[in-house]
C-alpha cells in the first residue's frame, strides 16, 4: 500500500473532524468538567487533592477518550464509505489506524495540553507536570487505540456507547496502572518503560484487530 491512500485517509478524517464543529470540544469539556468537579466532592484539602489529582486526571482521560468514539467507524458503515475503504485500499487495518490516530490528534491530544491547567487546579506539584503530560500523551494514545477496537467491534450496533465502554475499559487497565505510577515515580522509573511497552503493543495489535472487526461489521 502506498502512502497516498493513507495520507488521503488522514486528510479525510481531519476534515470530517473539523466539520463536526463543536463535537471536537466534547472530550475537552468532559475532561475539564470531570476534573473540576473533584474539589467539590473531596473538599478543598490541598494535600489530599495533590495526592489524588494525577489519578483523577487519568480517570477523566480514560472516560473522555470514549465520548466521541462511537461515530469513528459507525458513520463509515452507515454511509457506505467503509465498503469503499475495504474495496479500494490494500489494508483496512492501516486506514483504521490512521483514522484512530487522527481522532486522537484532534480529540485526545488537546486533553494533554489542558493538563497543566487542570493539574494546577488540583494542586499537582509543578515537578510532576512534565511526567504527567508525557504519560497522558502515551496513555491517551493507548486509550484511543483500544477504544478504536471497541468502536470497530460495535460499529453495527445502534447506541453503542455503553458497549464500547464495556469492551474498552478492561483494555485500559495496564496503561492506567503504569501511567499513574509514572506521574509519581518519574520518567526514569520502570513504570514509564512499561507504559511505553503498552503503547507499542497497542500500536502493533489494535490496527489488525480494528481491521478484522470492520471486515466483520461490513458483512
Amino acid at each position: 500500500m502506498t502512502a497516498s491512500p493513507l495520507f488521503s485517509a488522514f486528510r479525510s478524517s481531519l476534515s470530517e473532524a473539523w466539520a463536526s464543529g463543536a463535537g471536537l470540544l466534547l472530550p475537552l469539556g468532559f475532561f475539564a468538567g470531570t476534573a473540576a468537579l473533584v474539589p467539590f466532592t473531596l473538599g478543598s484539602d490541598a494535600e489530599l487533592l495533590s495526592r489524588v489529582g494525577p489519578g483523577i486526571l487519568w480517570l477523566a482521560l480514560a472516560l473522555s477518550s470514549m465520548v466521541t468514539l462511537e461515530r469513528v467507524f459507525q458513520a463509515d458503515l452507515q454511509d457506505g464509505a467503509l465498503d469503499l475503504w475495504l474495496q479500494d485500499t490494500g489494508s483496512i487495518s492501516l486506514v483504521a489506524a490512521i483514522k484512530t490516530l487522527t481522532h486522537w490528534l484532534v480529540s485526545g491530544f488537546p486533553l494533554v495540553l489542558l493538563t497543566p491547567l487542570i493539574g494546577f487546579m488540583l494542586g499537582v506539584s509543578p515537578d510532576k507536570m512534565v511526567p504527567a503530560m508525557l504519560s497522558y500523551a502515551l496513555g491517551g494514545l493507548v486509550f484511543f487505540l483500544w477504544g478504536g477496537v471497541a468502536a470497530a467491534l460495535s460499529a453495527s450496533v445502534a447506541r453503542a456507547g455503553l458497549l464500547i465502554a464495556l469492551i474498552a475499559l478492561p483494555l485500559y487497565v495496564p496503561a492506567l496502572i503504569f501511567g499513574v505510577q509514572v506521574v509519581d515515580a518519574g520518567l526514569e522509573s520502570p513504570s514509564f518503560l512499561f507504559l511505553c511497552a503498552c503503547t507499542l503493543f497497542a500500536l502493533g495489535v489494535a490496527p489488525a484487530a480494528m481491521g478484522a472487526a470492520l471486515r466483520l461489521a461490513a458483512e
Binding site: 466539520a19 454511509d79 457506505g80
Partner: peptide, 8 residues
C-alpha cells in the same frame, strides 16, 4: 445502495 458520501 449507499453512496459512500460524507455530509461535509
Amino acid at each position: 445502495h449507499t453512496n459512500g458520501l460524507k455530509a461535509h
